[in-house]
Design a protein around this nucleic acid. Structure first.
Lengths: 213, 213
DNA sequence: CGGTTTTCTTGATCTAGAGCAAGGCGCCGC
DNA sequence: GCGGCGCCTTGCTCTAGATCAAGAAAACCG
């Protein structure tokens, strides 16, 4: 399993201005990424848009003092990587073993309608994320997060979290301890059951829905 | 001054599904809005995209418990109101006496390229806002906010804040008291000067830039 | 103008969540 | 199957910012 090559997992940093490797430009070919493998980095020349075939991806920015803000997670079937400008504004990494295909290239191959739809989706996702970050308590943030992930996994119970507590914290603007305590609180109240830290069974999703209104 | 009609300031709530009033559909005609006048509300049928000719607009959502999250401010020359769906997801209000023109209608009149550019701009704005909300201190948030507004006003000193402390707080995820204390802190450190609460002279913008990296 | 209202500032507490520390658990490699 | 390392949980303390409570300063309005 995963015996194949993971071309981007240890590829050298792509110098801004160079074109992307050709294996990424071939549509339908799946590129494989190991956990924590870099997909692109801030400052890279933008262009390719990716679709997650399997696995999961985090998109983030680094701040001063080592602080990290995760902007979005992308699960199987989802698309990411559209930029407004020539230059990547974020880092993207696989969180688990993942397979990506290139679905488009901002300059060609893709209709303006497709790009508009993608831009609008990314806009909504950023706006909804912003609403959660702004004025919600830790419990409300985690509730919104769990419901979002559950829905995007097709409401299959139990849900599988491909990200660590650190990722969740950096996504919700919380520390890993607060995330953990919030999980425990929900567990103690019978709202969810934890089968290991990464597998969550939502026993009372309505209680979560109540929390985020 | 402002003796004219303010058609939307006390118009009855627009029932979702009805078409917008025809005076709004005529391009280049300026619609005037009084302070706090509603431009559209969550649940309205979406369609029109506006350009601020003069004045300023806030876009926000209401949460449970009366909490409000301001998603964006729009100053003269800026465009807002593009939605991904049939239905408005936010409220929009004028903050001061404002004049708006209709620059497009999602279904026609506008090229897909224009809409894409607008969607990308709104996406970036939401993402940058999200980065500020996530992991920044009150002082860092206010610094980022002031630099953003200053730049959007063409770096004219002093800058004019068309919004109240409440608006700023609801935009940055802070209380009005914390916003006020942060202003005072900057004033005491000689970073800015306040000529009344709404007029701010940035004496040391570099100090602010240092704060938000 | 002068009075009223609203917005802003400042001070004094209080608290949610951060930070620090110490186990515990599970996962991975051997 | 076993050992070790990284991730997660839990408890304790501390602090940034919320909340509560007055005043001060603008903006508004007749």
């Amino acid at each position: 399993m995963y015996a194949g090559v993971f071309p981007a997992s240890n590829r050298s940093r792509q110098t801004p201005g160079t074109t992307a490797p050709s294996y990424l430009a071939r549509p339908r070919q799946i590129s494989l990424f190991s956990p924590d493998a870099e997909i692109y980095r801030q400052g890279d020349r933008s262009g390719l848009v990716y679709r997650v075939e399997f696995g999961a991806v985090r998109v983030y920015r680094l701040h001063a003092g080592g602080r990290r803000q995760v902007v979005s997670f992308h699960l199987a079937g989802e698309t990411f990587g559209l930029e407004a400008d020539r230059t990547r504004r974020f880092f993207a990494e696989a969180m688990v073993h993942s397979g990506l295909t290139v679905v488009g290239n901002a300059s060609a191959e893709t209709t303006s309608e497709d790009l508009l739809a993608l831009a609008l989706r990314q806009m909504i996702s950023a706006q909804e994320h912003l609403l959660v970050l702004g004025r919600q308590s830790a419990l409300e943030k985690l509730a919104a997060f769990l419901l979002d992930i559950a829905e995007r996994q097709g409401d299959l119970d139990p849900i599988d979290l491909p990200m660590t507590r650190i990722d969740i914290g950096d996504y919700l603007g919380l520390t890993i301890e607060t995330v953990s305590r919030s999980f425990s609180k929900f567990r103690d109240e019978g709202i969810l059951r934890l089968h290991g830290a990464r597998t969550v069974e939502l026993l009372k999703p309505d209680r979560l829905r109540l929390l985020c209104q």
